[in-house]
């Protein structure tokens, strides 16, 4: 089993590396670079060439990649080509803001989704199930930018209760941001939980129909014991992977939703940086996204191993 985990970790490192190479290449293929973006349309070729030299853009791409990689391995992700600040510090600030949004979304979203999925599954075809399933179906079929836009319209125009669009800039403190987190979080939770609810409902129903749950009922067990000891552990297993996939999706969803609400996080920074071809910033964000993605899947696997005795104990133990 240790071997299995070691293999998964190694694979994860490779995945992260590949993602960086891919993004680096993609940026090279885009027309224009940071120098042309900074100087604008009318810059003279000389000026562009000088700036390129200052920014180090005249080096061959491969050399630049390895020098970046060497720095990255020591925790130095370079300086922004645009703001000339340390990329680590700039991305770090945005990361704190995004983490606030992400943590709230994940904690509230997953808990809510699991509870709702379980309730729907246990009360199959009764009205709570119908209501929950309908909401989940809407969440699955409507993309996040639509949800976000509807929320902006609804709250900024009809009921201006929550701040719909964030006015605080990149340097806002957490206290300033907290009220503005609500609407982006609602939009993300809505979409994030839809798939988890569906999956949880289906697997609770499957497990409830199984012979071992019937046996648990016929033993005269209490409802609580049947649900929490007999149904839940087995029902969680297939749901875990869906949770991991959706949390990983969050990385992309955040970009879209943040930019609609103008929330000063990683997503907004990412879009700005792509516009300015600010390669070091983009690369760090890529690495971070890949790490989140890989860690989510790794965690899901580890929890499956913890929940599933079949994975923990091989058959030969008989």
């Amino acid at each position: 089993m240790t071997l299995l985990i070691a293999r998964r970790v190694a694979l994860s490192v490779v995945t992260v590396l590949l993602a960086t190479v891919l993004v680096f290449t993609a940026i090279q293929l885009l027309p224009g670079d940071a120098a042309t973006q900074i100087l604008g349309q009318n810059a003279t070729p000389d000026a562009v060439a000088t700036l390129r030299g200052q920014l180090g853009l005249d080096q061959p791409a491969i050399a630049r990649f390895f020098s970046w990689l060497g720095g990255a391995l020591h925790g130095d992700f370079g300086t922004s080509l645009v703001s000339h600040q340390s990329v680590g510090a700039e991305v770090g600030r945005a990361l704190v803001n995004t983490s606030l949004l992400a943590v709230i979304t994940i904690v509230v979203g997953i808990t809510l989704a699991l509870v709702l999925g379980m309730v729907a599954g246990l009360l199959r075809d009764k009205w709570p199930d119908v209501a929950i399933s309908t909401i989940a179906l809407v969440g699955m079929s409507v993309p996040e930018f639509v949800v976000a836009t509807v929320l902006v319209l609804l709250f900024s125009i009809t009921i201006p209760f929550f701040p719909a669009v964030v006015v605080a800039g990149q340097n806002a403190t957490i206290a300033e941001l907290l009220p503005s987190v609500t609407l982006p979080a609602v939009a993300l939770i809505f979409v994030l939980s839809a798939y988890i609810i569906r999956m949880m409902r289906t697997s609770v129903i499957d497990v409830s129909d199984s012979e071992f749950v019937r046996t648990a009922v016929l033993k005269g067990n209490s409802l609580g014991r049947i649900v929490f000891k007999h149904i839940l552990p087995s029902a969680m297993l297939p749901t875990l992977n869906v949770i991991a996939m959706n949390v990983a999706w969050l990385v992309g969803g955040v970009v879209v939703v943040e930019s609609i609400f103008n929330y000063p996080g990683i997503g907004t920074l990412m879009i700005q940086s792509v516009q300015t071809r600010d390669l070091p910033v983009i690369l760090l964000i890529t690495v971070l996204s890949a790490v989140v993605f890989v860690v989510c899947n790794l965690l899901a696997d580890l929890i499956s191993i913890a929940l599933n005795p079949r994975l923990r104990h091989s058959r030969s133990a008989r």
Partner: peptide, 16 residues
Amino acid sequence: VAMVPQNAGNALTPTM
């Protein structure tokens, strides 16, 4: 009453 179900393999909770 108690029941020994058909196919005990499926009647034991796998996670307990």
